[in-house]
Simulated assay, not measured.
Amino acid sequence: MDKDRFLTLFLKHERELAGIARAALPDWNAVDDVIQEASLVMWRKIDQLQADDEFIPWARMILRFEVLKYRRSCSRDRLLLDDDLVSLIAVESKDDPAEFVQQQRSAVRECLKRFSPDHQRLLLAPYTRDDAVKEIAEAAGKTANSLYKRLGRLRSKLHDCVRLQVGAAT
């Protein structure tokens, strides 16, 4: 593929790629960084691209690897989605990534309402501070390990609820 055609395709689909990246990254600055890195990789691998209709799957694959690379570099940040959810978003966001993300957010909000305030607090604790679960355990007179086990069960229930909500919306 020639460079002019690549640039045309990239510019045409840049917003779509940014939407996909935003679904997996914490903010727009990270999206900009990842899109820039992905575009450099694409530019270097331009010879792999043969036809216009191959651009989106090819670009998504490169973008996915760049997102994962960025996430590994920020792995200590607990506000990032886990890699399984990022993969799920990448697979299921084929039509309209912005709509899919909105459906996910709405489903999470609705499903969280079904949990007691204590369970909501526990579900959200790991995303606030590193030691939040430990503090909750100490305040409740329980071990952190027991709360992490409960957290795992609650996350599983939340995951099931979100899948049902998103499935019902499609």
Rank of each mutant, 00 (worst) to 15 (best):
L112P: 00
E14T: 13
R105V: 08
V41K: 10
E16N: 01
Q103A: 06
E16G: 01
K12M: 02
L63I: 07
L81V: 02
S93W: 02
V91L: 04
N29R: 03
S93V: 04
Q120G: 05
S39E: 06
L9S: 00
N29S: 14
I89H: 06
A90F: 07
V41N: 01
A21F: 12
C74K: 10
R64A: 15
D84N: 13
S39M: 07
V31T: 09
W28H: 09
K69L: 04
I35V: 11
E66M: 05
F115E: 10
R72F: 11
L85M: 04
L49M: 09
D84L: 04
D118Y: 10
K113V: 06
V41T: 14
E14W: 02
Q48W: 06
V41Q: 02
D53H: 14
R121L: 15
R121N: 03
I35H: 02
E92M: 09
D96M: 05
D47L: 02
R22P: 00
S87G: 08
L79I: 07
L79D: 08
R15T: 13
K69E: 02
S106G: 03
H13G: 03
R64C: 04
R105T: 04
L9A: 00
K69Y: 10
R5A: 11
K94W: 07
E37Y: 10
R109C: 01
I46M: 02
K113T: 13
Q36L: 12
S116F: 04
Y70L: 01
S87I: 09
H13T: 07
E99N: 14
S106R: 14
S75E: 09
F115W: 03
D82G: 10
L17V: 10
Q120W: 00
D47R: 05
A107T: 12
L85Y: 09
R22A: 14
D82W: 03
A90G: 09
V31R: 06
L81G: 12
R64G: 11
P57S: 04
L7M: 13
A38C: 03
P97Y: 11
V34Q: 02
I20Q: 07
V86P: 12
P26F: 12
Y70P: 00
D118M: 15
A23V: 00
R109A: 13
V108G: 01
R44L: 11
V67R: 08
K94C: 08
E16W: 06
S116C: 15
V101I: 14
